Amino acid sequence: MTTPDRILRCKDVMALTGLSRSTLYAMMSEGTFPASVKLSKRAVGWRAAVVQAWLDAR
């Protein structure tokens, strides 16, 4: 059985990557950072495994 992927909120991603919110969104629009996952009308998050893979690739 696989464990579900954890969802990281923006503050967690900023702390993990060292990037600011505006840089995260700019990199997402350029396609150089993984896209967020819509959680509700006003909430987004990022899959922890995808963010970690992005960090490992850097």
Rank of each mutant, 00 (worst) to 15 (best):
T2N: 02
T2R: 07
T3F: 03
T3N: 12
T3P: 09
P4M: 15
P4F: 13
P4D: 04
P4L: 12
D5A: 11
D5I: 08
D5L: 05
D5K: 04
R6Q: 14
R6H: 08
I7Q: 03
I7D: 02
I7K: 02
I7L: 13
I7M: 06
L8Y: 08
L8R: 01
R9E: 12
K11P: 14
K11E: 15
K11M: 12
K11F: 01
D12V: 01
D12P: 06
D12F: 09
M14D: 12
M14N: 06
A15D: 06
A15W: 03
A15T: 09
A15P: 01
L16R: 11
L16N: 06
L16E: 08
L16G: 06
L16S: 07
T17W: 02
T17H: 02
G18C: 02
G18F: 11
G18A: 06
G18T: 11
S20G: 03
S20N: 05
R21T: 14
S22L: 11
S22V: 09
T23Y: 09
T23F: 02
T23V: 15
Y25G: 13
Y25L: 11
A26L: 05
A26D: 15
A26M: 10
M27R: 15
M27Y: 14
M27I: 05
M28W: 06
M28K: 07
S29Q: 10
S29G: 00
S29N: 02
S29H: 03
S29I: 05
E30S: 11
G31E: 13
G31Q: 04
T32I: 13
F33G: 12
P34V: 01
P34G: 05
P34I: 00
P34H: 08
S36H: 04
S36V: 03
V37E: 11
V37A: 10
V37F: 09
K38A: 04
K38R: 14
K38S: 12
K38N: 05
L39E: 00
S40W: 02
K41V: 04
R42I: 01
R42M: 13
R42S: 14
R42V: 15
A43G: 00
A43H: 13
A43Y: 01
V44K: 09
V44L: 05
G45E: 07
W46T: 01
W46Y: 02
R47K: 08
R47D: 04
R47W: 14
A48F: 10
A48E: 15
A49D: 15
V50G: 06
V50E: 03
V51D: 00
V51I: 11
V51W: 00
V51N: 00
Q52M: 04
Q52K: 10
A53E: 15
A53T: 07
W54I: 01
L55I: 10
D56T: 15
D56V: 07
D56E: 12
D56Y: 05
D56W: 14
D56P: 07
A57P: 05
A57Y: 04
A57K: 10
R58L: 12
